[in-house]
Structures are given as C-alpha cells and as structure tokens.
C-alpha cells in the first residue's frame, strides 16, 4: 500500500508510518518518498487540507492519505458531537472538511478512490507514546484537565517526558520511532485510552484491508 502522511513534524511523520504499519500488519510505502508533506499547524488546516487531498488524489498514485493533528487545548471529541459538530473540536472539523473535499473530487477512471484516515492526538502525539506508563494520559483525563482539574501532566510536560528539554530534531525523530514501535505492539490500550482520536482512526485504516 502506498500512503501519504500529512502531519505537523518530521518526528510525527516517522511515528505515524510505524503506527499505520502496526495497524495494518504490513509494510507500507510512502509517497512522496523524499519531499514529504508538512503542515504549518492547525491554524492553516482550512487552506492546507483541501490542497493536500486534491494533490494526492489527482497527481499521485498514493492509495491512502493519513492526516493527524494535535488537539492542543481545544475540546476533546465526544460521541455526542456526531451530527452536531462541536465548536473548535478538531476532529469534527476534519470530518466535515474532508467530507466536503472528497465530494468535490472529480472521477479519475485510472485510479481507485483515495482512502483517508484522520486522527487527533489528545492533546499531542506524545500522549500516545506515554500510554501505559505511570502518567495517566488519555482523552478522559485531558477532558478533566480542560475543566481545570489537575491530572499530572500538561502539553509541555508530555514533550519533556518524551524528548527532554529542547531536543535536537534527530533525537526527536529517533525517539518517536522507538515509541511508535513499542505502541504498535500494544494498540489495544492506546485505543482504550484514546477512543475517539486514535481508535476511530485505527478502525478506518483496518477497514482498508477488508
């Protein structure tokens, strides 16, 4: 399978490839191989996402597109949002935007439809890496944090826990790869702790095999 990954950093990209392979249970090939796609952050998503979807669909042979953003301090997605988009919920936004763009794509007889899986890491992808450690990461705990409760971690501490303070880029990439490899061996816990931002993303990817 040829996949295109669109996320916020080179470390995230490296980890996502491994997670996708873990979910699928097979190796994937990245497209483009060298000049990888990169987001400037969620503030640019409105402009970036349509361009990335269309470009991947019209101008590449990629079978699928992986889109993952951090939720940062925005609301955590909940089941009650379905059919009733919540303001500032990034997952709701991605769902609507991707749906709109996909509907606008013109048929390309020479290629299959583009499969898209999108996830939102709550509050950041480093929380996924810390799943199963003594730090109580998860969507439920972050919801409590957003309500003002102390939960033992915040966005900064997550990154410091994983990478240390001001890590150099290569160390970030290597750490992300190492953590993603560990996670790929135990996806069940990750899905349990992150039922909206990760589990739905993983289920979408699994459906591609059927």
């Amino acid at each position: 399978m040829r996949i295109t990954i669109f996320s916020e950093s080179s470390a995230d990209e490296a980890a996502l490839k491994i997670l996708v392979e873990g979910i699928l249970g097979e190796k994937v090939e990245e497209e483009p191989r060298k000049n990888k796609l990169r987001s400037r952050g969620f503030a640019s998503v409105e402009n970036e996402l349509p361009v990335v979807i269309k470009s991947t669909y019209y101008n590449t042979d990629a079978d699928s597109l992986i889109v993952v953003y951090d939720s940062d301090d925005e609301p955590v997605h909940e089941k009650k949002h379905y059919g009733n988009e919540a303001e500032k919920c990034r997952l709701c936004f991605l769902q609507r935007k991707i749906s709109e763009v996909v509907k606008s794509l013109k048929p390309r007889p020479e290629r299959n439809s583009l499969k898209i899986a999108f996830g939102v890491a709550v509050p950041a992808i480093e929380a996924w890496y810390l799943c199963g450690t003594k730090i109580p990461v998860g969507e439920e705990s972050w919801k409590r944090k957003l309500k003002g409760e102390k939960v033992g971690y915040d966005r900064t501490s997550l990154k410091e826990e994983i990478y240390g303070v001001r890590p150099f880029r290569q160390k970030q990439i290597e750490t992300a790869i190492k953590e993603a490899k560990k996670l790929a061996q135990n996806l069940e816990l990750l899905e349990e702790k992150f039922p909206e931002g990760f589990s739905i993303f993983a289920n979408e990817i699994r459906s591609w095999k059927q």
């Binding site: 483009p32 796609l37 990169r38 987001s39 400037r40 990335v52 470009s55």
Partner: peptide, 8 residues
C-alpha cells in the same frame, strides 16, 4: 505560501 510549504 501555505500551499508551497505543504510540499504538494
């Protein structure tokens, strides 16, 4: 500028 940055 944003489009270029994405790499597409």
């Amino acid at each position: 500028g944003e489009v270029w940055f994405t790499g597409v």
